[in-house]
Amino acid sequence: MLIAPSLLSCDFSIFRDEIIRVDEAGADIMHLDVMDGHFVPNLTFGAPVIKKLRGATDKPFDVHLMISEPHRYINDFADAGADIISFHTECDSDIAETLDLIEKRGVKPALAIKPGTPVDAVLPYLDRLYMVLVMTVEPGFGGQSFMPDMMEKVVFLRKEIADRGLKTLIEVDGGIAKNTIATAAKAGVDICVAGTAVFGAPDAKAAIDELKVLCG
């Protein structure tokens, strides 16, 4: 299991220091949630902030675009140093064209689906994806409760990926904690995004280590 701390839960007043802290604590990936206040009812940060933070770590930047028109900003996030760009099937951009833009920039493409979206939405694009992000909460705010029924999507995707002979990774985001991560691991998740479970812990390294141990 790879652990991707959600920087949405960090202390923004010391953003760079928080990245360094979880890097040293054993984080595998840095998960950065970009929200536009339209696609989801919250605002976070954009490409200029990510570009300034890129030098804080050499760990991959997993940029999750919760925005209405991701195709307009792919070059900005690629220039900022994104290693993975995920965007939502529910967005207003043409999915195939947006994937084209990501691939042309040499960034790893990923698609995300909200809890209410059928997993079938990603299937036409699965062969092109580095990763599928299954939201286990409604996107927009941290600290929500894990939706265990979303694991049905993960199980289905795991089989579909295997049947097609692909290496596509499955990531889940939302409510990952000590009491939920084993459920995600059992379903076949590769990457768990964890916010409060890491940044809210008194010892980030101990928290990350424990999450990994609980995966078995």
Rank of each mutant, 00 (worst) to 15 (best):
V49R: 05
R72K: 11
M35W: 02
H71A: 06
G195P: 00
T136W: 01
A25L: 03
G165A: 02
L8D: 04
D36L: 10
G46C: 02
D23P: 04
V213K: 15
G143H: 06
I113N: 06
N179K: 14
S6H: 01
I170W: 00
A201E: 06
A206H: 11
M147F: 03
R16A: 15
V137R: 02
G46I: 00
L126P: 05
D163G: 09
E18K: 00
K153W: 03
I181N: 02
A110F: 08
R164V: 11
H71C: 10
L65G: 00
A112N: 02
L166Y: 06
G55Q: 15
D62R: 13
E103H: 13
A207L: 01
G140D: 04
P109K: 11
A4T: 13
D209Q: 14
F12K: 11
P60C: 07
T196D: 13
E160S: 13
Q144R: 11
S145Q: 12
L53I: 08
D120A: 14
S68H: 08
I161Y: 04
P70G: 12
T168L: 02
A207E: 01
S6R: 03
T196M: 03
I74D: 12
F12A: 10
G216Y: 04
M35C: 09
N179P: 04
D120N: 13
G142R: 00
A187T: 11
L8W: 02
A110Y: 10
M1L: 13
M30T: 11
D62G: 04
D163F: 05
K52P: 01
F45P: 07
V154E: 00
E90Y: 09
D173P: 06
S93G: 13
Y125H: 15
K108P: 02
A82Y: 05
L214G: 11
Y125Q: 04
A177P: 00
L129G: 07
K178E: 08
E138T: 13
A197T: 14
K104L: 15
K153P: 06
